[in-house]
Design a protein around this nucleic acid. Structure first.
Length: 428
RNA sequence: GUGGGUGUAGCUCAAUAGGUAGAGCACCAGGCUGUGAACCUGGUGGCUGUGGGUUCGAGCCCCAUCACUCACCCCA
């Protein structure tokens, strides 16, 4: 196992480098999301990438896959159990309580961005280290905020040019509703146990709700006429779901109620939602972002009873789905400075700084290579203009300004460098 | 954790029935001794993932191993 690693240095399995130009695409996605978050009054929360293990066990749930088999857990030098965060909500709640934020303001809205870690088998759109952006809103129990968050998620994706979106909404009910529904579901499935796939036979005991979205055809058949959670919601949950839908309609967000939409983390209560993309480049992972209410979690972690809702989306999946090529997001090079001779190179240094001070993107050649090579490079970089400085120009107090699109060039007094270059950039 | 696919130049891929490893792109140089993209010429670059086996001979066949990848479970 270790020999290969010694010979060839590789990134850790399931963890990827993001190189240019893809990194520019990532930056654009993050920029867009932050703009939407800010516009809605969400402020940034930054938390450590690790937490003490019990935080995740208590919030996500002991019996979930994430906790059972996917956490990167280790002991530090003080023999404390530490875990690389597998998601963002637990840390947010911890920070909320640790700093007593609710005492300062009954409504707290945060967003976060950063890497998450889950030790599972990597595949397209799913990695062991993945970058998530998400929001959490504490202290608001009204359904309009649910609708607003769902709309935010959709807005981010649409403004990034992603089409074919599908918004699914459901309610998993309140603390009283879920056990009732669970019992009804088990009562329905138990007699048909033999027709379920092995996994679902096991789930029947551990987490029967998960049978609902099993992809196995035989399970789908058994589940087709299973009782719907919608029929088991209490009045409060029912009314809340209606409120969410009313909000979505008011915002013009197309959506569908999907009674089989079940989230994998235990803390969800009431509203759950998911935005998927149909078709596209994502492979089997077509969920771009998802979220829901977790009205009981803050209290469960020792805080005051506080309603809460949040969502998160995966950067990798969004980047894979966005139609625009990554290069589109890289800064355009306005001017490339080519030097002929050591003295000229020194002169380019200052000239480049002047151009940058005027807001232009300028790059100069530092290596002593032929002019031909410099032009070749300028062309490859897509420079709009090239400034040439050589001994002749230095002596005459001019520079050569070449329009790389038109293929024309002129000699310009050194003093007019910035103005002439700016003017050239404005030309079509 | 389970199953499938694939490993040949920096990238994308060839290599007929086992018979001396190739192209395009990219990069460098020249054709134009201070000028890009097109075109032409030349050049750098590989122990064919690794280790074994079969064979006169293996990129090709067999075994193992590692890596990547897709899918399942689950999820963003």
């Amino acid at each position: 196992m270790s020999e290969n690693v010694g010979v060839k240095l590789l990134a850790v399995k399931g963890m990827n480098d993001v190189l240019p130009p893809d990194s520019a695409k990532w930056a654009a996605i993050e920029r867009c999301a932050r703009a939407v978050f800010h516009a809605h009054g969400y402020r940034e929360l930054r938390t450590p990438i690790v937490e003490y293990t019990p935080l995740f066990v208590r919030s996500i749930g002991e019996a979930t896959d994430v906790v059972e088999k996917e956490m990167y857990t280790f002991t530090d030098r003080g023999d404390r159990m530490i875990t690389l965060r597998p998601e963002g909500t637990a840390s947010a709640v911890r920070a909320l309580l640790e700093h007593g934020e609710l005492a300062r303001d009954p409504v707290v809205r945060w967003y976060y961005a950063g890497p998450m870690f889950r030790h599972e088998r990597a595949q397209r759109g799913r990695y062991r280290q993945f970058y998530q952006l998400g929001v959490e809103a504490f202290g608001v129990g009204e359904p309009t905020i649910d609708a607003e968050q769902i709309a935010m998620l959709v807005e981010i994706f649409t403004s990034l040019g992603i089409g074919g979106l599908e918004t699914l909404v459901n309610s998993v009910g309140g603390a009283e509703d879920r056990p009732r529904y669970r019992a009804a579901l088990v009562a329905h499935l138990e007699p048909r146990r033999d027709a379920l796939c092995p996994d679902c036979q096991r789930r029947l005991g551990t987490n029967p709700l998960r049978v609902l979205d099993c992809k196995s055809p035989s399970c789908q058949t058994q589940v087709a006429d299973a009782p719907s959670i919608l029929d088991h919601l209490g009045d409060a949950a029912r009314a809340h779901l209606d409120g969410v839908r009313a909000g979505l309609n008011a915002l013009g967000v197309a959506h569908r109620v999907e009674p089989r939409l079940v989230r994998g983390l235990d803390y969800y209560t009431g509203t759950t939602f998911e935005v998927r993309v149909t078709g596209g480049d994502l492979g089997a992972q077509n969920t771009l972002g998802a979220g829901g209410r977790y009205d009981a979690l803050v209290a469960e972690l020792g805080g005051p009873a506080t309603p809460a809702i949040g969502f998160a989306f995966g950067m990798e999946r969004v980047a894979l789905t966005m139609p625009a090529p990554a290069t589109e997001f890289e800064p355009k090079l306005d001017v490339y400075l080519a030097a002929h001779g050591a003295a000229a190179r020194l002169a380019c240094l200052g000239a480049a700084r002047e151009l940058r001070a005027a807001g232009l993107v300028a790059e100069m050649e530092h290596r002593a290579v032929s002019l031909k090579a410099q032009f070749k490079r300028a062309d490859r970089l897509g420079a709009r203009a090239v400034v040439v400085i050589g001994d002749t120009e230095l002596a005459e107090g001019v520079i050569v300004l070449r329009d790389m699109q038109a293929g024309t060039q002129e000699r310009v007094p050194r003093a007019e460098l910035v103005a002439a270059t700016q003017q050239l950039r404005e030309r079509v």
